[in-house]
Amino acid sequence: MSLEIGSFLSIGLILGVVIITAALLITVERRLLGFWQERLGPNRVGWFGSLQVVADMIKIFTKEDWVPPFADKFSFVIAPGIIMTVVLLSFAVIPFAPNIGVIDSNIGVLFILAMASLGAYSVMLGGLSSDNKYALLGSLRAAAQMVSYEVFMGISLLGVVALTGSFNMREIVESQADGWYIIPQFIGFVIFLIAGVAESHRLPFDIPEAEQEICAGYHTEYSGMKFGMFFVAEYIGLVLISSLITVLFFGGWLGPEFLPPILWFSIKAFAFIAFFILMRAAVPRPRYDQLMSYGWLFLLPLSLVNLLITGVIILSMQ
């Protein structure tokens, strides 16, 4: 079986690698956070703590999977499934390497944005069905935050799309052979980075699950593997956002010949994963109202201006 787009081998590889990476990230993040806080982090299980993830998995699988009697059972159960599904589906259009990928879609960017929007249902349903005031507050925050940030996330990408002239992710990568879009689209990159963090509600924008204020937000009532699915989905989302940045602004698999393209992709993606973890270690969480006004009053105009200027430049270049 050859490694080509859409082959079972390719699909299986992507699915396996993404999930295992996400799981490993649990350990990696804890170690990195430790280092950045002048601690050691988990180092007891396995060599330098490498088996910590195994211990964590055993724990999370064997925990009691409790559904609160007051919860709405159906929505409560499907909510974590939705988020897992949509983030994994998003990987379908990611071009990992010239020959690795699930589909080569002409509307790749739109597909990603659509999946991200569906993700909002998961946290909303999870919070609402829990019948818990913390969960409700968390899901309200999550819904508002995700819907808001999707707006300029999309707009910030339009510069890239305009430059390429296509929604196809592979074409976007290939069109960067002469130079990565980070240079012409720097502002777009910054906005996408911020929106991406907000979209995956990672720190510093983890307002929907801010422990200090609302317990654990929308997944307060979740336990066992259902919680685990929210937990792992967050890390998969992290991988997804990093991959997207790599694809859209850093030339995807492109790089000098001495390394295979998939490795270039991995190195770039991992650098952004590490950057997100660094942000978690360094940047404090803003207030909810600050987050919303920052998005609508600053990022939205900025992304529109960015799109306008890009358009003007493209028109004047023709």
Binding site: F35, W36, Q37, E38, R39, L40, L278, A282, V283
Partner: peptide
């Protein structure tokens, strides 16, 4: 200031750790 924060925290990677084992 945000970038500086990130940089300073990143540099901690190379500091001696406080953890007593």
């Amino acid at each position: 200031s945000q970038v500086r924060t990130l940089w300073l925290v990143f540099l901690k990677l190379f500091k001696k750790k406080d953890t007593v084992e």
